[in-house]
Simulated assay, not measured.
Amino acid sequence: MTAELLAFVSAFALVFAVELPDKTMVATLVLTTRYQGLPVFTGVSVAFMVHVTVAALFGGALRLLPGALVTGVVALLFGIGAYLLLREGFAPVRDGAEDASRQGAGPVSFTRAALTSFGVLFAAELGDASQLATVGLAARWGEPLAVGLGSFAALAAVAGVAVLVGHKVRARIDPRLLHRVSGIAFAVFAVAAAVRTFA
């Protein structure tokens, strides 16, 4: 398997696991209960594209710094991600989608629904675990394009699941368990990067 393909698969798998139970899924689900699916998917996809591009470029730029500094930054990013995910994984279950799901899709233009969806997800994803993962993986693999594409594909897939399946998926998957598993994965990556920093 080439480095580019491995970077793509790693980014896709990690970001998909992180975002499936996260606010990205919930926010997209809630937006879909209020607007038509296509403009929601379009808006959130553009928001993801902007975030992933910035994160992948930043991660690629980190490779220009000394190796120990890069692995230290990567360890810090994954450590922060692990903390955020584990905090969510052990938090009490919040119930925000049910009230919104009682409201039907309103008569809103495609453009307005897409722009609203873009704004909501753009704000929600700032500094999110998936963005930290994208930066960390781009710095680790030195393949920002492959990592960026993998992260974007994962985010788009999560949004697609939310739009197509909606609350049924959320009812069948325990989001806290996925947060815990993802948080442990982030912690392992943080420890591995920290070991490389001080080795």
Rank of each mutant, 00 (worst) to 15 (best):
F8L: 14
V169E: 04
F189G: 00
G89D: 10
V163F: 08
T116S: 15
G142Y: 09
A138K: 06
G127Y: 04
G96R: 10
A171R: 13
V46G: 03
L84I: 15
L31W: 00
A68I: 06
A159P: 04
L164A: 14
K23N: 06
F58P: 01
A156Y: 07
I173H: 01
A114V: 04
L20V: 11
L31D: 01
V195D: 05
L57Y: 07
V44H: 06
T197E: 09
Q131F: 01
V93E: 11
S130K: 01
F118T: 03
V161D: 06
A162H: 06
R63N: 15
V30D: 03
S101K: 13
T111G: 10
T53C: 04
A61E: 12
A156E: 00
D95M: 13
P92S: 10
Y83Q: 04
V18L: 15
A17S: 13
V195N: 05
T116G: 09
V195L: 15
G150E: 08
L177K: 12
G59D: 07
F122Q: 00
I184M: 11
L69K: 03
L132N: 04
L64C: 02
R87K: 14
R170Q: 12
P66T: 06
G106V: 11
L6N: 12
A162W: 07
E19I: 01
A139T: 05
L155I: 04
V195R: 14
L86G: 07
R87N: 13
A105S: 14
Y83T: 11
F8I: 12
R196P: 01
I80S: 03
A105L: 08
G136F: 03
M49S: 11
R87Q: 15
G142K: 07
A192K: 12
G119V: 01
V26D: 02
T28W: 03
A91E: 12
G72Q: 04
V18S: 15
A47F: 00
G136Q: 02
L115G: 03
R34N: 05
G43Q: 02
K23Y: 04
L62K: 03
